[in-house]
Write a protein that binds this DNA or RNA. Structure first.
Length: 300
DNA sequence: TCAATGACCGTCCCCTGATC
DNA sequence: GATCAGGGGACGGTCATTGA
């Protein structure tokens, strides 16, 4: 995970970028890129949606958003953060020109917001509060009744990890569809934590031993497992219908090279399906060969 | 209404000890 | 000496509660 990631353009101004920067690339590294100069990103909005002091009421205005762009917004909102490269690959079949045109349109209308990592200069996208509202109140809602949408960058250090969840989803969704199933809902760890913490907070008034006792009940209510006293939360949960239309779910974890044997083992014991990048998967597999775990690690 | 506080969780980094 | 693994602390996310 890159430690030099500068999450928020306005919080950590990037002096290497200007209004004319194409795809977040500075002048010095444009030579190796065939990308068209005509497609430019818009500057992000200046208010921080999570900072109450900057909570300016955004006036309602009309937006020109195509069905394809609404779908793009739904994807970004579902996963909170998506790398532009992944979005281009998945949503636009690698058609960079179309992806940039649509994303730029959404940025211009302040429905999307971008951030650029350093030094990789990868572009990440998230919904703005306005984009979030648009998605809930317009045609997006009907098509996504149970789906929770998120906006704003969070977890500064983990944006890359969060963005990789989209790749994780694509990989597992392919498997589900290939086996005749259909994904019905995507649940991020945020949603699970929210539900969990609310319930755990209610236990705080109980005696310590009773809290421990109730903890596993609470975990069970959300389909989770307590391993060595800790509730294991997956990075991503997919609810889907199998080929016989039976509702089911799969909990997914995206492991990185930084994972310790203990925490990885706990994820395996909890029954999570664990994915990692090809290189990390090779490195992490020996840890999962523990006879008590015997969990496979799948390569992204 | 809002800020402060505390609890819980996951990830990352640094330090230390064991092993080669 | 180099490498690896584990422990512990820091950090940042969530929530509910409390008091001004």
């Amino acid at each position: 995970m890159g430690r030099d990631f500068s999450i928020d353009d306005e919080r950590q101004p990037d002096t290497s970028r200007s209004d004319n920067v194409v795809l977040g690339r500075s002048g010095s590294d444009q030579a190796d890129s065939p990308r068209p100069r005509s497609t430019r990103f818009q500057e992000p909005e200046s208010s921080d949606p999570r900072n109450p002091k900057s909570r300016n009421p955004i006036p309602e205005r009309s937006h020109e958003v195509s069905q394809s762009q609404t779908k793009t917004m739904a994807d970004v909102g579902t996963f909170r953060t998506i790398a532009l490269s992944d979005l281009t690959h998945v949503r636009y079949g690698g058609n960079e020109k179309q992806a940039l045109a649509e994303v730029n349109n959404l940025l211009r209308q302040k429905l999307l917001r971008r951030s650029i990592s350093q030094p990789e200069r990868a572009v990440y996208l998230t919904l703005t509060p306005e984009g979030h509202r648009f998605l809930l109140t317009r045609n997006g809602q009907a098509a996504h009744e149970n789906q929770v949408f998120y906006h704003g960058f969070v977890k500064t250090r983990e944006t890359e990890h969060d963005a990789a969840i989209y790749q994780l989803y694509q990989k597992e969704a392919e498997n589900i569809i290939a086996s005749g199933g259909k994904v019905t809902r995507v649940i991020l760890d945020f949603e699970l934590k929210k539900s969990l913490n609310r319930k755990l907070a209610r236990l705080s008034s109980l005696p310590k031993d009773e809290q421990e006792e109730r903890k596993s009940e609470v975990a069970k209510e959300d389909g989770l497992t307590v391993v060595k006293g800790r509730i294991q939360i997956p990075d991503l949960r997919l609810e889907y219908e199998d080929r016989d239309h039976n509702p089911t779910k799969v909990d997914l974890e995206l492991a990185t090279g930084h994972y310790r044997h203990g925490s990885l083992a706990a994820k395996g014991t909890a029954g999570f399906k664990i994915y990692a990048s090809a290189s990390d998967a090779v490195r992490l597999r020996p840890a999962m060969a523990d006879p008590e775990i015997m969990q496979e690690i799948f390569a992204l």
